[in-house]
Structure formats: C-alpha cells, structure tokens
Design a protein around this nucleic acid. Structure first.
Lengths: 222, 222
DNA sequence: AGAATAGTGTCTGTCAGACAGTATCGC
DNA sequence: GCGATACTGTCTGACAGACACTATTCT
C-alpha cells in the first residue's frame, strides 16, 4: 500500500543517549545501514509503529532495544523537528528524546541492525551527522545542561554507588566548566535525592564516602 | 483513499492561545463543530497538512488563522502527547504549542468553522474539555509560568504601550500570586527588553510612565 | 614526612523578600 | 489637605563564588 506523502507526515523518534566516559559527556551514534543517509553517523532513531508502540517514549525505548539492546531508566522529550525537507522520504516530524545510561553500563551495548556504534564526545563532533541530527543533538545537550544548572542531579548517569567527587566530575562534564567543590557539596547537604552510605571507596589516598540515589529518584523532579 | 491506522500515526497540532483580560490569564477555547468530541470545548487544533504547512509552527499558525483569524507574534513548542487512545480516530501524536495575544487584540477574533469561541480563565476550568486537552492546557500553563519565573517578560501579552504596574499585574496573573512591587521594578532596571518612553498615562492619580518592548524582543531569550 | 585526595569553614557580593517611606497627580 | 497611585530606599536573610584551611589515607 502506497501512502500519499502529501497527506500524511512521517512520524519519527530520535534518541540522544548520553553517558559519562573518561569524565566526558558522550552520546551514542550509530552508523546507518540503510538509505537514506546510508553509512552516515546518526542518532539512533526510527519510525513510530502504531501497531507496536504505546507512546513516543515507548517507541524510543523500542528503538534503543532494537539497535543496541539496552533498557533505559530515564527518557524525556526535548522538542520536535518538522518540515518537508529534513528527511528526503518526505514531510516528517522527528520527536527528539534524550536518555541517560549509567556509566557502568556503557560497555553492555550489543550492535543490531546497524553498521557500527560509537560513543562520541559531544564537544568533538565531526559535524557530518545525518539529517538534522547535529541540531537535534545540540538541543538535547542544552536541555540536559539546563536541568543540571537548575540543580537537578544526573544520578541516572552514575553507577549504583559513587563518591561525591565522581558526581561532581559528571556535572562538570555536562556543564562544560569546573564547579567549586565546597559550593557543590554545600548544595548536596540538603538533598533528599542522595543516600549517604556507610561504605568508603579505598584508593591511593584518603577514602571517600559512597552515596547512592534514593529509591524513588526521578531526574528533574528536584 | 483509506489509510491504515495501524501503520501511520495521526499528526495533530493543538494551540493554547493565552491573553490577559481583567487582570486574569485566559485561554482561548473553541466549541467543536465536528466529530469526534462534537460540541465539546477544546483547544484550537487540527491535523498537520504536509501540502500546506512548512512546519508544526506553521500548522499552528494556520489553525489559528482558520478558526479565529489571528496572526500570532509568539509561538512555542511545549511538548507532545501520544498514544493509541487519546483520539478515537486512532494512534495520534498531538504537538502542543502555546501562543500569546496582546491584550488590545482579544476582541479582534473572528469565529470560523467552529460553533463558538470563548476566553476562559485558566483557574476556572469546567473540567470537561475534549480529548486530553485539559492535561495539555496544564502543561502549557506550567511552561508559561516557568518562563516568567525565570524572569522572561511576557511582553507579547501587553499592548504596544504599557505601564510597569500593568506589566506587573500580567506577571501576577500568570504566576498566580502577588509580586512585591519594588522587587519587580528593581529587576526591570537592568532589562534591555524595555524601552522607557517620555509619555505618561494620565488617570485619576499620579501619572505613570509608559514603556514598550524593545524592537527585537523575543520572549524567553532573556 | 610528603603527596594526594576528602572534606570543611569563612569572607564577600548579589539578589530576593518585606516593608516603610517619598513623590506627584486629581479633587 | 486628602486619597490614590507611582516610585524609591533600606534592612535582612539566603545563597553562590572564591579560596584557604583541616583531615585521613598511602607510600
């Protein structure tokens, strides 16, 4: 059955999946195995399938499962890109969502239905992404940054247990600039999102106390 | 031509058009002239038409023009509502946008293609809106409030010339609580968005200085 | 002891909230 | 002068930035 592209827009979800690696904010890119934009790097994305998906968030979850076999804790709408030109297949609406992957799961990805996968430092983009994905990625980064600036803690990016210094490095990676240690820790004092553990991380120096996210933590709901 | 609803989602734009009337924040509701949800009050909205629209914003502008004959200065995406159940016609994606109408234009509306139009106080909703429009409206109000709380000035709601007291009343109507006068004015001192005029509004008391938005004002871009 | 990292204390400037005070109009 | 509204001044507390300081580990 042929659908008239003059009558119905394509509905797409694209996902910016972030993680922290080497104290840098990275985003998942996939190499497209099919036209259009074949062999180009892109955000993982795909058509919304009304017979399978229950919502845009569900579609985004399915796409991530299909392409890299991950289940995602946090998923959030950013904004929408639309128009006749942004996809050569026709008038389209791309719904951008972003998601956060804990840093102890970045190596658990399994490539499927695509040519390749990579984590790319968001500040070192080649500038040759498919479609309008570079604009999309910029919007997703801006949104994530805005949340952290509004004092939301990106705990979904952290492993189960972490030190305050690790959390600070994560926030710095997102914001793109250093934060004063005492300012950062002062803010955390009153936070109900963190649970102080009686465990310590032992290294080459003074051990650091470990923390974890509180049970009902949701990013962005203060 | 029949389209398989199992394969392609409906793409809709819904618009929350706000204005200030009697120092209250009001939203435009239209009474639907067609099924589904015939005769129910709803946000103005409609299908995106790829053969006519150049983007979701363009579609929203067209919808407002079609139903109440207004051209809108400020239009912004809020978020998206999706799923198989929210519209009886099938799996749909409703893109919610909001817009601001200057208070000296609220009587310029011309009803077209709909049964009726009304401005409704957002804090006095009957609770019987069509589809998920009540949730949508709540999201739009939250977004508008967040912007004003972040010190964006809702100048698109104001007439061309206005006093600081009028602007304060507008912000209070959006936020839903009073603001201290001196705090409000102190903030405005440094604002590049306002142009101080040499005109005054004369009334029963001491005349108040008039202001207007600066030439390149855009809501939310500080 | 010294290096390294964890964690704290304190000074300062900025700004919001609260509220009182002054200024300028019509009557 | 009086009422009403426009507009300003000032005190206070909360908090961010800057930076120095103490604490605890390993070598």
């Amino acid at each position: 059955m042929v659908i008239s592209r003059e009558l119905y827009p394509l509905v797409i979800v694209d996902v910016a999946l972030f993680c922290i690696e080497d104290d840098c904010l990275k985003v998942l890119l996939v190499k497209r195995a099919e036209a259009p934009e074949k062999h180009k790097w892109a955000l993982p994305g795909g058509m919304v399938k009304p017979d399978v998906d229950d919502s845009l968030e569900g579609a985004a979850r399915r796409v991530l499962n299909d392409k890299v076999s991950v289940d995602i804790a946090h998923l959030e709408q950013v904004c929408t890109f639309s128009g006749p030109k942004r996809d050569p297949r026709g008038w389209s609406v791309a719904n951008l969502l972003y998601a956060l992957l804990p840093s102890d799961m970045t190596h658990a990805l399994v490539r499927k239905k695509i040519e390749a996968v990579k984590w790319t430092n968001v500040s070192e983009l080649g500038g040759d992404l498919a479609f309008d994905h570079e604009s999309q990625l910029n919007q997703a980064v801006l949104r994530l940054r805005a949340k952290v600036e509004a004092h939301a803690l990106p705990l979904h990016l952290m492993p189960e247990k972490f030190t305050l210094t690790e959390l600070q490095r994560t926030c710095e990676a997102i914001l793109g600039h250093p934060i004063d240690k005492s300012v950062f820790r002062r803010r955390l004092k009153g936070s109900a999102d963190l649970v102080e553990l009686e465990e310590f991380e032992r290294g080459q120096q003074r051990p650091a106390r470990l923390f974890q996210a509180c049970a009902d933590f949701k990013f962005g709901c203060n």
